[in-house]
Design a binder for these strands. Structure first.
Lengths: 222, 222
DNA sequence: TTTTATGCAATAGTAATACTATTATTTGAT
DNA sequence: ATCAAATAATAGTATTACTATTGCATAAAA
């Protein structure tokens, strides 16, 4: 159905397109594994390069620094997710069911997508949960925003906001609620895994999280 | 009323109590200014020490590393905030009004507290918004949790959770909603300042944010 | 008064990280 | 086969995070 699918993701965050060379794809693949394994703080281009039998400097040909690499990966995920949402809700009749499907996709463990064999979507999902907020929690967020670093995230929130508005056109905080839904899904999964005193959601109990977010959303916009 | 008030905050996050020496208090004071100014990534103990006319090594006598220093400051804020909430809601009759007051405190610009002249609460509030999540978004979050790094945050969420439960004892996601409220307040303020496409809240429009969070909370638990 | 102990801060480092300049190699067009 | 362009590897430097050691006070004990 969607074979040979590619994203043109955040050209600004990389120096050259990593999907267009063998080394570039190995960089993406290995950086996802390594980031999930050791986290952004411990992650270095040296470790990454060693893992793919290359060198630090070669990685710097593709990405200015590790933060930009994270921006690229997070953008890839957001674009991919938006694609999945659009595809899965395309034939659905009511806006409410579409919103339900969207929340389902946001708060569920990821199914592997075989269209991109150099991206492990499950690991990438874990990176989003643990490291995602770090792409915007930086001092130069405004500069990066101007360079288009958050376009994919904005697109996703606009999509959800429009769903909310088609359910209740008079609701005044549709964007605020949209970003709250996305952030809450990721946050609560993190809490359930690491800080259980901050949530009623049990580890891997995605149904409970979905119920919470869906009930919160439905109650709020009606 | 509450003069000579001190917190015994997260002893585990510092090597010696910074409130008990002249240098220690200068470290706290200057680190708040510097963190707010340049952010955690650019922040170094060298810059901090230069700013207070001391040396890197002296700072290391008080804090193991900059992350532990951030943990200390964030804990101080959470403890201080919980104190303010308890004080301000003490005489209020209904649980709903108490919850309203709590959200008001979470989503408002900070008033200076003259009880602590080495802490600039307004700047600290900005640090919480921009850097707060970084205290738990680390690989060794479980270890730090065992050391008690998040006790103050847990206490705050439990407090809010209990307020929710006294409004509706049958609501099953009180803790989840509590942490969602806290995170949402901080998140949306950040978005309003830096990523306005992700929120309907305008910069410094705290009333709009309060209305959103309060309506969301009230709708959800009823 | 001298000696000894204790706490604190400064000096002077080391190891690791982030990043770059330059050289070597490959690729592809002519 | 030759040359030009693109790509990757080598070998660095500067900065950062962190530590080992020394020096200097103050104060208690001899």
């Amino acid at each position: 159905m969607l074979s040979n699918l590619t994203f043109k993701v955040s050209q600004s965050s990389c120096l050259r397109d990593p999907t267009e060379s063998e080394l570039g794809m190995r960089i993406l693949s290995q950086s996802i594994s390594l980031l999930e394994e050791i986290g952004l703080e411990q992650f270095t281009f040296k470790k990454l390069a060693t893992g793919i039998g290359s060198t630090e400097a070669s990685v710097y040909r593709y990405f200015e620094n590790k933060h930009k690499l994270l921006v690229y990966l997070v953008n890839w995920y957001w674009s991919w997710l938006q694609n999945r949402i659009v595809t899965k809700t395309y034939n659905q009749s009511s806006a409410f069911i579409k919103l339900e499907t969207t929340i389902e996709l946001l708060a569920s463990p990821i199914e592997q997508d075989d269209n991109f064999d150099f991206i492990d979507e499950k690991k990438l999902y874990n990176i989003i949960i643990s490291e995602g907020a770090k792409v915007y929690l930086v001092k130069n967020v405004d500069t990066e925003d101007n360079e288009g670093a958050f376009l994919a995230y904005k697109g996703l929130c606009r999509l959800i906001s429009n769903l909310i508005l088609s359910i209740n056109p008079k609701y005044m905080h549709s964007l605020t609620l949209a970003s709250t839904i996305v952030e809450t899904c990721h946050n609560q999964i993190f809490f359930s895994e690491h800080l259980p005193k901050l949530t009623d959601v049990s580890e891997d109990d995605y149904d409970s999280l979905k119920e919470f977010v869906l009930h919160l959303t439905a109650s709020t916009i009606q």
